[in-house]
């Protein structure tokens, strides 16, 4: 006596959906590289120049390290300041943009439009504007990073808020708590660890971003990176990159640790 297994429908048996999607994505990739004139072949034929650059960078000028320690320190300070200011402003906006907390579609729509707009502005453009306003220096960098972080963090935050368990909110509502108290008692504890994790992720991105911002005179390690590249002094470039890598790794380590502790 064998059990009659129900027949799988045709669609599932031949994995029509996953195969179909893979094909569509492949076709889109090939088509878009054709249309934009990206030549993959050139990447491989010019690989020699790339290795040449790597070889030149493979002898870091370690005596350059003491010189860049201070600007690196400044970069970290800029990143921390910018991320903190941006994230602080992001929290109320994230709350107002979350569809499970704000049922007014107009309010939510307007808030999201503002956030989209902020995210559309490229950070290099922002840096150029603020260097023009505040002059060359780290103030311009901090403001740029703050706005950049605000746009990014608020989106990450409201997406986290939309995944929370609504049960505690119902309980607090039944207790007779007002909106602000409900958010404080029932929403924030649920999202705190992910907030911290996203905050540190943004901090890490900002450390890297501020190296680029230095190009525009927005302070920090970027100024030195630009200088070394202009002088074709690749052994100095590699020291800067390695030092930045250490900072990024330290932040990553802190982030991993905090996530474990806060979970």
């Amino acid at each position: 006596m064998t059990t009659q297994i129900p027949r799988r429908p045709w669609l599932q048996r031949w994995h029509v959906k996953p195969i179909g999607w893979t094909l569509i994505i492949l076709i889109l990739l090939v088509a878009s590289s054709r249309m934009t004139g990206v030549d993959v072949g050139m990447f491989f034929s010019n690989l020699g120049q790339f290795t040449d650059l790597l070889v030149r960078m493979s002898r870091p000028a370690w005596d350059y390290l003491p010189i860049i320690l201070h600007p690196l320190y400044e970069t970290i300070q800029m990143a921390i300041l910018g991320t903190t200011i941006g994230a602080a402003f992001a929290v109320p906006f994230a709350v107002l943009a979350a569809s499970n907390l704000v049922h007014n579609r107009w309010l939510r729509g307007i808030i999201r439009l503002i956030l989209d707009l902020v995210r559309t502005l490229p950070d290099l453009l922002l840096a150029a504007i603020f260097v023009a306003i505040f002059g060359i220096g780290s103030t311009a960098g901090v403001v740029t990073l703050a706005i950049f972080s605000f746009g990014m963090v608020s989106k990450l935050f409201y997406e986290v808020i939309e995944t929370i368990d609504m049960g505690p909110l119902e309980a607090l509502e039944s207790v007779g708590a007002n909106k602000l108290t409900i958010i404080w008692y029932a929403v924030l504890p649920q999202i705190m660890n992910q907030f911290v994790s996203y905050f540190l992720y943004t901090l890490e991105i900002n450390v890297r971003a501020s190296t680029v911002l230095g190009y525009l005179g927005a302070g920090g390690i970027g100024v030195f990176l630009q200088r070394s590249l202009n002088e074709f002094n690749y052994s100095q470039t590699s020291v800067i990159i390695l030092a930045t890598l250490v900072v990024v790794m330290v932040i990553d380590g802190i982030s991993n640790h905090l996530r474990r502790v806060l979970l």
Partner: peptide, 8 residues
């Protein structure tokens, strides 16, 4: 579902 804030 009790509806406690589990992380508090």
């Amino acid at each position: 579902n009790f509806n406690l804030v589990k992380r508090s």
